[in-house]
Structure formats: C-alpha cells, structure tokens
C-alpha cells in the first residue's frame, strides 16, 4: 500500500513519555520517506505499455495477469503516479488537463475555468481563507490556459514538467482537496451516510471527516472523494478496479469465465447518464494510476 504514514513510529531516547516520538522525529521520518519515494518515481511518470504492468505480476497472482490481458483490449497504455497518498487527485487532474490538450477542447476548457472560478465564492462561504487557496486557483487556471494554447509535443512536455514541479503540482492537489472538502460539507445530508460510524470518539461528522481525511495532503482518496470532486467540477471519471479477486466481473458477459477488472463510472448529476468518461484511472488497492483508452 502506498502510504505516507510510517507504519511504526521509531522509539525515541529521552526522559519523557517514552512511546511518543517528538514532532521533529516524526516529520523527519516523513520527509525521509517522501525523499525515498521521490527517488523512485516522479509525481507523474511516463506513458508505458500495459505489458510493463503485466510483467509486475508474471510470477505472482495470475488473476492480475488475466485481468490485465483483458484490459489490453480496451486500453493502450498507462502512466504511473507517485504513491504519496495524493495519487488520485494528481492522476485525475493530469489526465484531465492532458485530455484538454490533446483534444484542443476549447469549449470544455472554458466550462472548466468558469466552474473553477465559481468555487472561489463557495470556498470563502465554506470558511476557507482566500489567502490559503487564491494562488493555487490561479495556478490551476494558468495550466488550463497553457494547455489550450497549443497541442504539440512541446505543450505536452511542459504539462509534464509543471505537474512534476513540487510547488505547482502540490498547489493544484491542495486546491482540489479544498474543493472536495467544501463540496462534501455543502452536501452534508448526501455525504453523511458515507462516513456514518467511521469513528465513535469523537462522533463522525462530515466536517471532522474532511479535516482528517480530505484536507491534509497525503490522505488517500476513497469512493467519497471521487464522488465529491467529479461532482464539484463536473468531470466524468471511470475507475478500473484491478485486484486479485477470482470472481469473473458481473454484468460484463464477455468471454465465459474470463476474469475481468470491474469498473465504476462516476458520472456527475449534470451529465446525461452514459456520458463518456474524460478521465480513466486504474485502481489497485491503495493506489491510482492513469489509463489511456484505445481510440475509436
């Protein structure tokens, strides 16, 4: 599982409560883990053939191999994201911006920019301080303007460079987290059942959930985050769930008995049912990467 949290806290020398490492020690360990991950993978990797994914499982669980084989019928390539707990948000926005760029979709870009701008007032109303998100919002809008200017190789490279930049990339992830949090809190009645019973002490509220599991960087995303952000920005997303389970995917009805990764479409209320997803993500327990559908 890709996690930014140390599984076990290191013991710390000292005269005080011995099971409590200092803030410094915890931060230091977190930074160390981040630095190690940064060495292994970029925030957003290069496009790779699905064969590279299959190779990971060749000597392991054959259910994965079968399912990836099936995926190859519909998907061309994939792109890894760093497993730092922000992979959903980062993969989602990268794939979306890349789609705008490749399709030179000016109408969609304009729609998206006006939705993003509409969140300014909603965030302020939701109690977020402008100084916290205004620069991040500008950065996101700049990226959109940038990708609609040209759709050549250079523009594509530039998007990759920007989304690998600590500041730009994290600011945009932060903005998406705040929008997600705000959406969840604005529609408390709808989202409360999702978190009901998550913890007793203190009792679960959507506000507390957002403070603990949506707003902090590195908190992993779940069904709830995806529903909220796709709804908030009105971007349909398909998530393909790849796990080791051995049951054939229901409803597919394809090859008899063939194992197939199940998928789930997140279609915002404003889009007609069946709207084609703009972003395809591959979920493996604990992690999201980007998928590229075959054209046609």
């Amino acid at each position: 599982m890709a996690s930014t949290e140390p599984a076990a806290e290191p013991p710390v020398a000292g005269s005080e409560a011995p099971d409590r490492p200092s803030d410094e020690a915890i931060l230091q360990q977190q930074n160390q883990i981040r630095a190690e991950q940064a060495k292994v993978s970029e925030y957003v990797g290069q496009e790779e053939n699905l064969g590279a994914l299959k190779a990971e499982y060749e000597n392991g669980n054959q259910n994965f191999v079968q399912k990836i084989g099936k995926l190859e019928e519909r998907y061309r390539t994939f792109r890894r994201t760093r497993g730092d707990g922000n992979c959903f948000f980062r993969g989602f926005i990268y794939a979306y911006l890349e789609g705008l760029l490749q399709n030179s979709d000016l109408a969609e870009a304009n729609r998206f920019m006006s939705v993003v701008q509409s969140w300014k007032a909603k965030l302020v109303e939701g109690g977020f301080q402008e100084l916290v998100f205004e620069d991040a919002m500008e950065l996101l809008l700049e990226q959109v303007k940038e990708v609609t200017k040209a759709s050549d190789q250079f523009a594509q490279e530039k998007l990759l460079v920007n989304m690998r930049d600590d500041m730009v990339s994290n600011m945009i992830v932060m903005f998406l987290r705040l929008v997600t949090s705000c959406e969840v809190q604005r529609r408390e009645d709808f989202f409360f059942p999702f978190i009901l019973g998550m913890y007793d002490e203190p009792p679960a509220t959507v506000e507390l959930f957002c403070q603990r599991h949506v707003e902090p960087m590195g908190e992993e995303s779940d069904h709830l985050h995806i529903v909220a952000v796709t709804e908030a920005l009105q971007i349909p997303v398909r998530v393909v769930y790849l796990d080791s389970s051995g049951l054939p995917a229901g409803g597919g009805g394809g090859g008899a008995g063939a194992l197939e990764a199940s998928c789930h479409d997140f279609v915002p209320d404003s889009c007609p049912p069946g709207t084609a997803p703009r972003v395809h993500l591959l979920y493996r327990p604990g992690h999201y990467d980007i998928l590229y559908a075959k054209s046609g």
Binding site: S22, D23, I26, Q129, V132, M174, R212, E215, P216
Partner: peptide, 15 residues
C-alpha cells in the same frame, strides 16, 4: 517545550 498536537503532525492541512 515540544508540543503534542495532532494538527502539528499528521492532521496538518494547508487549509
């Protein structure tokens, strides 16, 4: 003077 407070650790958010 070290402080034990969740928001100074894993519960910090850029908000």
């Amino acid at each position: 003077g070290a402080i034990c407070l969740d928001i100074l650790k894993d519960q910090w958010s850029p908000a």
